[in-house]
Design a protein around this nucleic acid. Structure first.
Lengths: 101, 101
DNA sequence: GCCTTGATTCGATATTCCTAGAATCATGTT
DNA sequence: AACATGATTCTAGGAATATCGAATCAAGGC
């Protein structure tokens, strides 16, 4: 994962699934302290094992940060990394002239 | 593709590949009038048929707009749609309080 | 220690995606 | 019309993903 483009592409891929994008949106909208996996499951109605894979995908790319709290695991968004991702798309837009965006 | 989340997830998926993300970045940085497919191929060094699939993927999600110019086809970024995509991730962040982002 | 609950890991299947050579199409030129 | 060039479509096989029930793990309560 040396190049920036590979790293950010992996993140985009992680968000390239309705369930995972739904998870991220839910977590972004939710409590800054994080949303428990069970609550995510209840809202999105995804089987636990499937959701767990999706959460792992999002966490392993650094978009979500898991935090244990007793038997619960809260997932919160890494806003700094999310910002890097969205900014990446606009970097040096139009050669940096910003005439178009 | 009724729901917003499905539409944007499809776009994220389109960007979830190093070659395609590289294409978008190149086009975003390049001439606002668009970048010919051949030029993209020369820079990214991707076989023509493979690149063509990637371009089709990006265009069919509405991120790139193809425009014929003689025997060339210029691809330019749809900045408005790209903005919608990046904004989507931040919508109603932290319940709209914006305390965290 | 046993039980419950929240969550992950295992395992197996079905599906989708990626790739690129060959063939084809489209446009402009001579 | 024949040709050259830019680009797409056809085709096929291999690789990577998505899914989810069952089994397992982890933490707290009794």
């Amino acid at each position: 994962m040396a190049r920036q483009v590979d790293k950010q592409a992996e993140r985009m891929k992680a968000l390239g699934h309705p369930s995972r994008l739904g998870v991220l949106r839910l977590v972004v909208r939710g409590d800054p302290a994080g949303t428990p996996a069970g609550e995510i499951q209840a809202v999105l109605k995804i089987p636990a094992s499937t959701l767990s894979h999706h959460l792992d995908t999002l966490a392993s790319t650094g978009l979500l940060i898991p935090e244990k709290e007793g038997t619960f695991i809260r997932y919160r968004a890494d806003f700094a990394e999310l910002r890097k991702l969205t900014d990446y798309l606009w970097e040096d837009c139009c050669g940096g002239g910003k005439s178009c965006c």
